[in-house]
Every structure is written in C-alpha cells, then in structure tokens.
C-alpha cells in the first residue's frame, strides 16, 4: 500500500471512488493530484481518460455538470 499521502492512479482506485458517489472529472483529478501520484499532468489526464473509457461508467448530469458513477 502506498505510503501516507501517496496515491496510485489505478483502475481499482477509480472504480472505488465512482462506486461510492457520482464524481466529475475535476473531483477525480483532485483525488489523483500530480504531487501525490508523482505523475505529470499530461500523464494523469491520459491515464484517467483511458481508465474511464475502460470502466465505461454511468453518466449523470447534476447541477448542469456531467458526473460519472458506477452502480455496485
């Protein structure tokens, strides 16, 4: 498990967040900040885009903002 404060951008981690509650792309990015993952911002954007396409989560417009979520 990552040391304190460090997180890993994995499909499992994204799946866990989206199963918990609907999140916007910005919410997710805040969970995987570059200073916590050690990834560059481009790498983070590309990785997250690939993971989201693979997970193919549900989408929901909340307060005019697109949210992703995964039903259990």
């Amino acid at each position: 498990t990552p040391s304190s404060g460090e997180v890993q951008l994995t499909e499992e981690a994204v799946r866990r967040y989206l199963s918990r509650k609907p999140m916007t792309t910005k919410d997710l990015l805040k969970k995987f900040q570059t200073k916590r993952t050690g990834l560059s911002s481009d790498a983070t954007v590309n990785a997250l885009a690939q993971l989201l396409k693979r997970l193919d989560p549900e989408r929901k417009l909340i307060a005019d903002k697109m949210h992703f979520f995964l039903k259990e």
Binding site: T25, L28, Q33, V45, L52
Partner: peptide
C-alpha cells in the same frame, strides 16, 4: 492548485468528448 485541476479537467473532458 485548483487552476491546475481546472486545466486538467478541461483536457480530460476534451479526451472524453465523444465519451461524455
């Protein structure tokens, strides 16, 4: 910084545009 998150969110949504 939230501006970094904003920029990255815009880039991410651009990546996902057909997906959104």
């Amino acid at each position: 910084s939230s501006s970094e998150a904003d920029e990255m969110a815009a880039a991410l949504e651009a990546e996902l545009n057909d997906f959104m």
